[in-house]
Amino acid sequence: MPVRAENLPVTAAAGDPSPPPDLVVTGRYDQGPGYRVHRPRGSASWLFTFTTGGHGLLRQGGARTRAGAGDLVVLAPGTAHRYAVAPGAERWRFWWAHCGARPSWTPWLAPYALADGLYAVPSAPAAPHERIAVAFARMLTDRGAARGPDPVVVADGFPARELALCALEEAVLLAVSGAGATPCGPRDDPRVRRAEELIAADPGAPHTVRSLAESVALSPSRFTHLFTLRTGRSPMRALREARLRHAARLLRGTDLTVERVAAASGFPSPHHFSRIFRERYGMPPGAYRAGERR
């Protein structure tokens, strides 16, 4: 079922669908004990949370982190996750946003990766917490929903989506800069950048860990380690995300059949492509194309 503003739950709960990555869905929650969400198959989109009070407990795969005031915790799509008011906490007050993350954000978050797809940027005295909260709030006010105890808004289509992403990008940059990270810090590696460029230039090519490693003169194991260290995700996760973004662009901008979109995006079969695409975007490729052209 397509996830749009009219069928998003006011408060997420176990079993609720996550928003697809082509939307930016933002909200502010103030939850008490008992609030919890569990997505055994993960989310279709990235989830950004910024805690302003109380404590939350977030888990991604086998890793977990406790979030307190000033902490930014990010969950990448595709891995089982759960989050809740932390045990013993009276409240968890937090901003949140579901969206498709810009590729440039993962190197900024990489120094704070706890596992493949779980990033915890800690609060720091130098971090401009108020400015981060204002950046999240701007995503609400830009959509005319600044009031209410738990407001939720959806930015769908240009330019609303881009304005929301710009505000979220500011929040991410403020958080990592206050915590001491830089986009091109010691974990930056030109060989990893080259591999990312190869993936972005032609997502549909028959890339493998071995072929990407050979293109930058590294062994597969060393390449995988460096790539994951710098970007916070494995090479194959990055490749799959790039292929899904490419497929979505083809569905929006061309009249190619689903079968040809799958082949052009590097998926081994239309059936496999449709299954993966539906998991990520919440609908099959044909429905996604129809929805984009309404």
Rank of each mutant, 00 (worst) to 15 (best):
25 V>C: 10
139 M>L: 12
229 L>G: 08
124 A>I: 02
195 A>P: 06
67 A>N: 05
294 R>T: 15
73 V>Y: 02
89 A>C: 11
136 F>S: 01
139 M>R: 11
293 R>W: 07
255 D>M: 10
228 T>Y: 01
186 P>V: 14
198 L>C: 10
21 P>T: 08
112 Y>H: 14
91 R>I: 10
127 A>L: 12
250 L>S: 06
202 D>P: 05
279 E>L: 13
135 A>F: 02
201 A>L: 13
265 S>F: 01
27 G>M: 03
60 Q>E: 13
121 V>H: 06
280 R>P: 00
14 A>S: 15
129 H>Y: 07
134 V>R: 12
45 S>F: 09
274 S>V: 06
29 Y>E: 08
72 L>D: 03
257 T>L: 08
181 A>I: 05
257 T>N: 01
139 M>A: 14
111 P>Y: 09
53 G>V: 05
253 G>T: 15
30 D>M: 13
107 P>E: 01
60 Q>P: 01
47 L>E: 04
42 G>L: 03
187 R>D: 12
217 A>C: 13
59 R>T: 12
10 V>D: 13
224 T>R: 14
194 R>D: 03
3 V>S: 03
98 H>E: 11
132 I>G: 02
202 D>M: 11
102 R>F: 05
162 E>P: 04
150 D>Q: 14
21 P>R: 07
93 R>K: 14
9 P>C: 12
40 P>R: 11
252 R>Q: 14
41 R>V: 14
177 S>P: 00
58 L>S: 09
118 L>D: 02
216 V>C: 04
148 G>S: 09
208 T>H: 09
62 G>P: 02
96 W>I: 10
95 W>Y: 15
113 A>E: 01
20 P>F: 03
6 E>Q: 13
20 P>D: 12
214 E>D: 14
132 I>E: 00
166 C>S: 15
215 S>H: 08
201 A>P: 08
74 V>D: 01
67 A>V: 13
213 A>M: 05
249 R>H: 14
36 R>L: 06
141 T>A: 11
148 G>Y: 08
74 V>I: 15
158 F>V: 10
63 A>E: 06
58 L>F: 13
83 Y>Q: 08
275 R>T: 13
277 F>G: 00
136 F>E: 01
135 A>R: 03
122 P>R: 07
279 E>F: 00
49 T>P: 06
5 A>P: 00
172 V>R: 04
139 M>S: 07
5 A>I: 11
105 W>D: 09
222 R>A: 15
228 T>R: 13
219 S>K: 09
90 E>V: 11
169 E>G: 15
98 H>G: 11
120 A>G: 02
182 T>V: 12
10 V>K: 15
126 A>R: 15
28 R>L: 14
220 P>G: 07
62 G>Y: 03
164 A>D: 01
126 A>E: 12
11 T>I: 15
168 L>M: 08
184 C>K: 13
61 G>V: 07
244 L>N: 01
50 F>G: 05
128 P>A: 07
63 A>W: 04
75 L>N: 01
88 G>S: 09
42 G>H: 02
37 V>D: 04
33 P>L: 12
31 Q>I: 06
293 R>T: 09
247 A>N: 02
224 T>H: 13
59 R>V: 09
140 L>W: 03
162 E>G: 12
107 P>C: 04
119 Y>V: 03
121 V>T: 08
217 A>L: 14
110 A>Y: 07
7 N>D: 11
125 P>F: 06
248 A>K: 00
1 M>Y: 11
248 A>F: 01
112 Y>Q: 04
277 F>M: 05
14 A>P: 12
132 I>A: 06
185 G>N: 07
